[in-house]
Design a protein around this nucleic acid. Structure first.
Lengths: 262, 262
DNA sequence: AAACGGGGTTTCAAATAATGGAACTGCGTT
DNA sequence: AACGCAGTTCCATTATTTGAAACCCCGTTT
């Protein structure tokens, strides 16, 4: 199921992931039936996680849920190691100028994690959007990032994709995707042609550091009811400019200190 | 420093917390100087956390930061075990009717964690607000929850407060706070009389389950420049009504199954 | 009323993983 | 060429984790 197995800590995190995957409060026996661990082991791992307030356990119902302490840890993560705080004003600007939905995402392993969003019409909902994950191989932001990933990392990531066919435009194999990635590199930006969700299209560009490391991606998303890929494409220069500005800020703020002693 | 010490997992989480507490990328030696663990141990714990993508380690700079995987875990936590998704429409309504800032918070150990917010004037910023933590003893939401906590839990929580005097209205000892909590129970809601931040006042009510368990709290916050406690108080019936509606929804959605077999 | 049985919790000797002092490596400095 | 610092690895010792089995609690069946 899960990959590496760093001793007890790894096991505990597997259990945590297991709880998360249910997406609802779970009982001990729910977990026992799914889990690879024997009763006593699972029991002790759950206890440890609960002690640490990473899980919470309702004494009455006997249910385990993810602890809100995670929310506060994530707040710190979001604040200190996502691009969101840095990119904020640029996304605001992009949103104002385009009037369309704007996403900021980063790559985690084989998945895309959305870290910020602007939605023209309705006020954005907090976590309901930030923290959301999506597949890398069939989203605009995902493909934009994969296109510029070093070979070894790309291979690793591709090996882990599920290749689920969300729509009939979804590229569901490695060869098709590798061709697409080459096209993206040639073109300089990525399309999402309803590959993840029918009716949803987007253009996306990567955010890359000076040395070419990929930091994240931004996209402008819309629906086929409102617009077309051709008109979305008009935003690409603006999008690219924004990505560059964000990258520049990242250089300044996050790594001002490549050679500092203290 | 940290309290309980559940074996290796506990140690790993201490290290994680340590990284988080810096609030910026840290080097191995930064951590080594703060940490209680010997070099080799700390090193291995960091490796494990990095393998698990709970931390991320930049090979070039040698810096550790919190991993964005935390953000996605927190998304699940927020979605499945915070009140935010359930409370959302009610907060919208409250915000519309009052035109003031609205907070939804939950208690985690000795701290208040804000899980949602509405801000009349400016569009809300994602994590910059959700996930934020505050002290329980000098915030409206914190006091509203403490007031209805069972004795044993209250004692435990009070023992862990820092009693920092943020303003000169801050209650900085247990006796003062216990009196205040009694007053809150008598009155049915809590004030924040600039106890955490000068110029910031609020009224808050707890969200309690049918059986009296405290689930969270909501508050209406404003500034002394715009309004007074007396006028804020006019919102209390509305606030209380909202809390009751949220509590009712929680009964329906979160525990529909006190006696279910499957 | 006694036997049953499904969660959940605890025990304890054996198996495994964590520990940390010390030695080592790589690299920029004196 | 020697030094010093940050980070990494070694390995015998030590402490923690393991999990089969026994147990407990409590509501249900006979």
């Amino acid at each position: 199921m899960e990959s590496k197995m760093d001793g007890t800590v790894g096991k505990a995190l597997n259990v945590l992931e297991e709880v998360a995957s249910f997406g609802r409060p779970v009982r001990f026996s729910d977990l026992l039936s799914t889990s690879a661990y024997p009763k006593a082991t699972l029991y002790r791992l759950l206890q440890t996680l609960t002690n640490q307030r990473i899980l919470s356990h309702d004494a009455d119902s006997g249910m385990y849920t993810l602890g809100i302490r995670l929310v506060s840890l994530a707040h710190d993560a979001w604040r200190t190691s996502s691009l969101a705080p840095i990119a904020r004003p640029y996304l605001d600007d992009l949103s104002a100028k385009t009037g369309e939905t704007v996403h900021l995402a980063q790559l985690d392993h084989a998945q895309v994690i959305y870290v910020d969003k602007r939605n023209a019409s309705q006020p954005l909902a907090m976590f309901s959007e930030a923290g959301k994950v999506g597949p890398a191989y069939c989203t605009g932001v995902g493909k934009a990032m994969l296109a510029y990933l070093p070979d070894d990392q790309l291979a690793e990531v591709l090996a882990q994709q599920s290749w689920h066919r969300f729509t009939n435009a979804t590229m569901n194999n490695e060869t098709a995707l590798r061709d697409e990635l080459a096209a993206i590199r040639a073109r300089g930006f990525a399309y999402d042609r309803e590959e993840h969700e029918i009716g949803i299209i987007c253009v996306a560009v990567p955010i890359r550091s000076e040395r070419g490391r990929i930091l994240g991606a931004i996209s402008i998303t819309s629906s086929t009811l409102r617009t077309s890929l051709d008109s979305l494409e008009e935003f690409v220069p603006l999008l690219r400019g924004t990505a560059e500005k964000i990258a520049a800020q990242v250089q300044n703020w996050r790594f001002p200190d490549t050679n500092t002693t203290a």
